[in-house]
Computed example of a mutant assay.
Amino acid sequence: MDADASIKIRRSAPVNFLKALVDDSLTVFWGDWLDLRVRIPQVAASGLVSPLIYILAFGLGLGSSLDRVTQPTVGETYLEFILPGMVALSSMVISFGGTTFSICGDRLFTKTFEEMLLYPVHPLALHLGKMMAGIVRGMMTAASVILVAVLFTGKLWSFINPLFLGLLVLNCAVFAGLGVIVGLNVKSLESVGLFNNFLIVPMSFLGGTFFDPATLPPVLKGIVYLLPLTYTTIGLRAAAYQPLSEFPWYSFPILLAVAIALAYVGAYQFSHQQD
């Protein structure tokens, strides 16, 4: 074999690996999609109740009082201020919860998870396929909340522009990836509830959903900015209401880095899973 042929083989190897990784990830995703597609209304509505309650209680109830005495830092009213956070919140809850319960169901009840571990695919493809299913779940529910936000504000482009949707997909990827890892490690559904109560619920209120993190004292600000939901909420608000020059571009690389780190952990977990 001559030198040129050898170089071509080495160059084509990463390309072939990426193509196989994408194909295998889509195959894993397709197995979940066959189940998801018959439950689209149920999935889309499953995460809508809590955001609607928050919108009515905080946006319309508390917000009407706050609007008389103060002006939100972003948006014209407090309701507008929290609506991007409601989209982020709903996508987080369903991406995480749907992915976790899907894997737990396969592992602990239907006992079909062992069959998936026998697939002749890279462990990263298993993680990415499950993560993509979580992204779809989160985007379905987020679409419902976006519809509610558009009905309340009349600002269609604010909630469907590329920056808004791009951040939303990354947010779903982060929490779906986290859901994969939790689903692979919990031993019972009660354990899922613990993760939800001690991780997701606190993040729902501390992730900048109902307040501007920039106004917090330095100590609290340091805690809040450790949460990935904070960067999603800040970015979605800016994408919805602020000019492009004020958009927090750091939100994209931070969320992408978290998603990549979780993918590494998830792939490692899949490669060592003993179920």
Rank of each mutant, 00 (worst) to 15 (best):
A44H: 09
F175I: 01
E80K: 05
I55E: 06
S245C: 06
V38M: 11
E114V: 11
P162F: 06
V174Q: 07
S50V: 15
G166A: 05
A20G: 11
G31R: 14
L83S: 07
V87S: 06
Q42L: 14
G177V: 03
K221G: 12
P120C: 09
F101Y: 10
G98N: 04
I146L: 03
L147C: 12
T27A: 14
L229F: 01
T100M: 05
V136S: 07
L189A: 13
Y54K: 05
Q269P: 06
F252W: 08
L206A: 14
I135R: 09
N196M: 12
W33G: 00
I181C: 13
I103E: 06
A149L: 10
V182P: 12
G63C: 06
A142W: 00
G59V: 00
I260R: 02
V22T: 14
S144Y: 06
V93Y: 07
T215A: 15
S65K: 11
G97T: 13
T232E: 08
A149K: 02
T70Q: 15
S158F: 06
V87K: 02
L89T: 00
L151T: 12
V15W: 12
L66G: 04
G63F: 01
R39P: 02
L220P: 11
A125K: 00
L194I: 14
V219R: 10
F96Y: 15
A133R: 01
A267H: 03
V22Y: 14
H127L: 09
Y231F: 15
L48A: 15
S46Q: 10
G183A: 04
I103G: 04
C172I: 07
S158K: 03
A20I: 08
L229V: 04
I260C: 09
M86L: 13
Y78G: 03
L216H: 05
D32R: 07
W249N: 04
V93A: 14
I9V: 15
E115R: 14
T73Y: 12
I146R: 01
I103V: 15
L36H: 06
N171A: 09
P120M: 04
K187W: 10
L227W: 08
S251M: 05
A176T: 01
H127Q: 11
I82V: 08
A44F: 10
F96D: 07
T99D: 07
V22Q: 10
L66Y: 12
S204H: 04
N171I: 01
A88C: 11
P228D: 02
Q71P: 05
T99A: 07
E246H: 13
L194D: 09
P243L: 06
V258H: 01
D23R: 15
A214K: 14
T215S: 15
A142H: 00
E76C: 09
S188C: 04
F152W: 09
A88H: 06
V22N: 12
M116T: 12
P162C: 03
L220M: 13
V38R: 15
T27R: 09
I94G: 02
I146V: 14
V28Y: 06
P248K: 04
M139N: 02
G138V: 04
V87D: 02
F252D: 05
S95C: 13
G47D: 05
I103Y: 11
T153H: 10
L227D: 06
G134A: 03
A13S: 09
T27D: 09
K221W: 13
I40P: 12
A173D: 07
F205T: 08
K19L: 15
V121A: 11
G138C: 02
F205L: 08
P51I: 02
M139S: 03
Y225E: 10
V148W: 10
V265D: 01
E246T: 15
N161H: 03
L194A: 13
